[in-house]
Nucleic acid binder design. Structure first.
Lengths: 306, 306
DNA sequence: CTGAAAGCGCTAACAA
DNA sequence: TTGTTAGCGCTTTCAG
């Protein structure tokens, strides 16, 4: 019988088995971006894990506000997926209620605030780690380049990394006023402009922590144009370990992006298939020292503390 | 009746309508990468167009050889999609036969060789455009940095851009021997190493055409480390207009990536829904002059031809 | 434990 | 036109 099936190259119809069993063999993934480094990596990790487990991945890019509104109004996930993954999705209470009403298994990545189990990193600790690296090198005058905290997308990450930055400064007894942080729109361009703001100040910090590697790339660009030496005149540290961080010789805090996608899928499928109870999981971040950080130039600032 | 449906928040079951109608409302997208700039952009363009038309997008990342083999053996697309899109998919004859046997509507992007209608650019013409820009600036000693033409992925693009490069040199009566092209694995890292190869030569060219912006970024990196001035000592031109090209001030040949995804979807849906006959479409490329190209330094090479 | 039959929730073809 | 019914190809349940 099996032989005959093989000869006729029989393939079960997914539609029929979905209808009969109620299981769709599909997982929905919602994300506000799909092309940015972090999101592309997470999606790739999720896609691979789902494929291996025999599931299909349905991608919903909610970046466009109109698309997002339509998504939450019509809930296209309904009847279409067994479970869902939210990547860095910061939701309004109404959106959260919609999601809850779907009544499907769900996991979240990168600190989505949906109330469902989450996989992610500790952004605050990671940011503090970056700052402590700078302090250990002897820096005392440190600024941060950051996205706009009012941007609904990326909001929580921005806030957490800022908090880590300020906390680490405070712990070390260093000046930590709000003017330590300069905001520009997230991205390379924003990073470049933020660095320009810093250059326009009367006194340049000796080190800069950028909220993301993308913003750090922009900052490096501005410094290059200004013919300033990195790390001689100014140290720069980023966050993420973007694929281009190595080639830009950027010191950074690495986070495992693909792994977060993979893990969230595993967790979701455990709930779905084995009724496991999902719990939050926090993945470690790691300092990667490269060439953009070094001790402050002697005389440019006070010496390292004892 | 409609009111009652709305009140009970009725949603049609896709599984049932698929089973009954035979239409799945889903398009499969096959790609060898999903995170690289070009692919991420194309997929985003396709996703948006499909979403607007009410279709779901099923993503198949065929980058891993084992995954690819399994894909062509089991043809998971069968019974699962109404049509498919192949992005830069260079296929073996057997793979092509499998695809054809699926007997579904299909379109291809970026020069896939599947025999189905294609949307893309003219890589050869684009490459020639890059070289002519350099020649017009007065360069006569021009090299190319390129991926490995034996790499099955990206093969056709590499070959076409090389051909355009050599053709343009030949047309201008410039030296066009095979040593004009240096090969390294595709990517930033490869571009950096290719530039190192060039620097190791007795005589440096005055300009370099990189097969892709990613490789150009690597080349710029190497030049920066070698403290060479761009474009003073050496001009660099890329290809693609990658999102980071602007911030790296890279002169390049722009190609519309999102648009290719969008257009391929439109074309596929026209075939599917209106029985239209799909035809190949070639999108234009465009020279974007930025700061990495300029005239050769006087005395470094012969003067511009009259 | 094996095999037959009753749906799953739609679409499409048919009758009225 | 509008209303009715027979499947679509599976899964699952229930007899045997």
């Amino acid at each position: 019988v099996l032989q005959a099936a093989a000869e006729l190259s029989y393939v079960p119809s997914p539609a029929a088995s979905r209808l009969a069993s109620g299981r769709t063999g599909t997982i929905g993934v919602m994300a506000p971006f799909t092309t940015r480094w972090f999101f592309a990596e997470v999606i790739q990790g999720a896609e691979r894990a789902l494929r291996e487990a025999g599931y299909d991945l349905l991608l919903y890019n909610l970046g466009d506000p109109a698309t997002r509104r339509r998504f939450f109004e019509t809930l296209p996930l309904r009847r279409r997926v067994d479970g869902a993954l939210a990547v860095a999705l910061y939701t309004s209470p109404a959106e959260r209620a919609s999601l809850r009403a779907l009544n499907i298994a769900m996991s979240t990545i990168a600190g989505s605030d949906t109330g469902f189990p989450r996989v992610g990193i500790d952004d605050q600790t990671g940011a503090a780690m970056a700052v402590r690296h700078l302090i250990l090198l002897g820096h005392r005058d440190i600024a941060m380049i950051s996205g706009n905290p009012d941007d609904p997308i990326g909001h929580l990450t921005t806030v957490a990394r800022r908090t880590g930055f300020l906390t680490a400064l405070c712990e070390a007894g260093l000046p930590d006023g709000p003017d330590r942080v300069v905001s520009e729109p997230w991205g390379v361009e924003g990073g470049a402009r933020a660095m320009e703001q810093l250059l326009a100040r009367a006194r340049l910090p000796t080190a800069v922590f950028a909220e993301s590697d993308e913003m750090a790339f922009g900052a490096l660009q501005t410094l290059r144009r200004a013919r300033l030496d990195v790390p001689g005149d100014l140290s720069v540290i980023g966050f993420d370990d973007h694929e281009m961080a190595a080639s830009n010789d950027l010191t950074t805090i690495a986070q495992p992006a693909v792994e977060q996608g993979r893990l969230a899928v595993r967790q979701l499928l455990d709930v779905l298939e084995r009724g496991a109870a999902a719990s939050d999981v926090v993945l470690p971040t790691r300092l990667v020292v490269r060439g953009t950080t070094g001790p402050p130039r002697a005389g440019r600032d006070v010496a390292p503390r004892a």
